[in-house]
Design a protein around this nucleic acid. Sequence first.
RNA 1: GCCUUUGUAGCUCAGUGGUAGAGCACUUCCUUGGUAAGGAAGAGGUCGUGAGUUCGAUUCUCAUCAACGGCUCCA
Length: 645
Amino acid sequence: MIKITLPDGAVREYEKGVSALGVAKSISEGLARKVLAASINGQVWDATRPIEEDASLKLLTWDDGDGKSTFWHSSAHLMAEAVETAFPGVKFWVGPAIDKGFYYDMDLGDRKLTEEDLVVLEKKMNELAKQSNPYIRKSISKADALQYFVEKSDEYKLDLLQNLEDGTITFYTQGGFTDLCRGPHIPNTGFIKAIKLTSIAGAYWKGDEKNKQLTRVYGVTFPNQKELDEYLLMLEEAKKRDHRKLGKELGIYTMSDDVGQGLPLWMPNGTIIIEELERLAKTTETAAGYKRVVTPHIAKENLYLTSGHLPYYADSMFPPMEMDGEKYYLRAMNCPHHHKIFDAEPKSYKDLPYRIAEYGTCYRYEQSGELFGLMRVRCLHMNDAHIYCNREQFFSEFKAVNDLYIKYFKIFGVEKYVMRLSLHNPEKLGKKYVNEPELWKETEDMVRKVLVETGTPFIEVQDEAAFYGPKIDVQIWSAIGREFTLATNQVDFAQPRSFKLSFTNKNNEPEIPLIIHRAPLGTHERFIGFLLEHYAGKFPTWLAPIQVKVLPISDKFLDYAKEVEMALLQQGIRVEIDDKKKKIGKKIRDTELMKIPYMLIVGEKEVNEKVVSVRRQGKGDTGSFAVTEWIAQIKQEIENRQSID
RNA sequence: GCCUUUGUAGCUCAGUGGUAGAGCACUUCCUUGGUAAGGAAGAGGUCGUGAGUUCGAUUCUCAUCAACGGCUCCA
C-alpha cells in the first residue's frame, strides 16, 4: 500500500501502482470523467500512469492551466495522427501546447497545405477523437528509439533524440500514431469534443532563420462545443477592438503606399490625442525638473560611430544619405543628440541631475514582415528623456522614473503590467554588449536594488539588455491580449565614456556621469495603438478627439445649438454640431458609433428653458442641465483627466 | 527578410474570359422629427501595379507592390 496526500491534506491509502484516475474514481465517478492529468509531487503526469510510491497528488481538470496544456498537447498528437493519415510520409518536429491551443511543426516535403486541407483534417480529427483511443505511454531504450526513427527516416525526431538520455525516453501511441514524447497526455482522445484548426504558417526549424522552414498548423480544441463557440465569439469581439480597425473608423491615422510601409500619417483626430499626451508629458516632466529640448532628425555617420550604435544596429537604420562627401543617417534614437546638448556647456556637480526631454522623432528600418499597425512602425515619436547624474543620485533618479510609470498607469487605468529587468549575457560581451564586465555587474546591481527596495514586482531575464547597459522594460497587455513592451527605463554607462562626457565633482575633478534613458509613455505610435484597444475607441473625455456633439432636434433649433457650441468652444472644449437633416434617432446613432463622450440634445424645451439634455456615450440620457453648470462639470472632468466611470 | 492567404466604390463585401454589382457612407430633394438606422433620386470604380497568353483579361499565367496570419527580429 502507498499513501496519497490530497490537496486538502487528507491522506488515503491505495494499492501500489494505482493511477491518478483510480484515485479519482475512488472519490467519485463524475470527478473521474473530468480528470485530464495529475500533478504528482509537483510534476504533471498522465492520469493513467501507475504511482509506485507515496506521493502528494492533485487531480488536474480543464479548470487547471496544466490540465488545459495537457489537453492541447494531446490535441496536437491527434492532429498529427490526422495529418499522417492524410499525408503519409510527413515528418514531424514538435507540437507543444501554447497560450491558447497548440501547434505542430511538420515537413510535408513538396506538399502544400491549403485552407481546404484544414477542413478535411478537422473532420478526420473528429473521427479519430470519437474512437476514444487511449494515449499509451511506453518507455523505450535510446537504441530502439533511434532504430524506429531511422526506419522512418525522420531526421527531425533523430535530432531530438540526440539530446535525450537513455532511460528517460518515452513513446506515446494513440490509435495508429506513435510519437517521441515526454508527455503527459490525457487518458484518451474522447475528451476532445470540439476542434478548430485556426491557421497555417511557416516557421523556421529550431527558430533559426537560416534553417529550413517547416509548415506549422495552429489549432485549438475544447471539451465541449459551447466553449469553442464562445472562443470564436471572443475572437470576433477582439477584432472589433483591433487598433487598426478602430484607427480607421475613428479617423485616427492612415497609411499610404505612396508614403511607404510602416509610416503612419496622423489624421486630425489622432493628432489631438498626440497633443493631449504631449501636454500630459510636458506638465509632468516640467514638474519633475526636466527641461525640454528640440533636436534634428538626422546626423552624420560619425555621431553614431561615437555612440556605438552603428556597429550594433546598422541593419535597423535607414541607409545613409550622402552629401558633400559626408554620410547622414536618419536617427533611430535620440540619445546621441541629447549627449551633445549635455556636452555643449561645461557641467559641475551642481548642474546634476541634468534632465532633458523631447518627444523625439526616430526612424527605424524594421523588416517589412515585422511591421504591425501602429505597434511596429518605421517612424516613431518617442516620449524620450535622458537624465545625467552621479552614482549617489542614481537611486532616487531611477526610482523617480519608476514612480512616473506608476503615475501614468494610474491615469490610463493600466492594471496588468510586468516590469522586466533585462540583463546582459556575459558570453556576448564585446559582441552584443559593450565589454565592461565590472560596470555591467555594478549597474545591474544598482537597478535591482531600486526594484527590491521599492517593493516593485519584477522578473529578471538574461540577454535582453541594451548594448550600453541594463534596463527595465515594461510589458503590458492590450485589452485583446496583445503583449508588447510599452515603456523602457535604461541605465547607460557606455555612452558617457564614448562621448567623453564629464562634470566637475566636489573635489574639482572631472567625473563621468551615468545616464538614464527613459520613455514611460513609449512612443505615440505604440501608446495610442494600445489606448485604442484598451478603451475600445471610447477615449476618456480629456483624450477624445471630439468631446461633445450638439444634436439639434431639427434645424429650427440650429441657432440655439450654435449658441451652445460657442459657449463650449470659448471654454476650450472640442465640440461639433450635427446639422444634417436627419431625425434625432439617426444623429444619436451616428454619434454613438463615433464614440463621442457627450451628446447635447437641443429642441424646443431646451431653447425655452436655456438648458441642454445630456446623453453620455453608452449610457443614455442623463438629464437636463443649465449650460454654464454643465460646462463647469465637463471642464472639471477634463482637467482631472478622469477615466471613464 | 522567409512561409500561408488576400487585394473589386470612402467602408464591408458579391461577381464574371465579352470592358462591373449590393448595403452603408456621400450629394440633392421631400420630411422638421425627442434619445441607436424616415423616404426618393443621383453621383462615385483603368477591378493594387506591370507584363504575358487570347480576337478580347477585372477574371488565366508570371513578375511586382501592399495588407492579413505566422516565423525571425524588436536600441
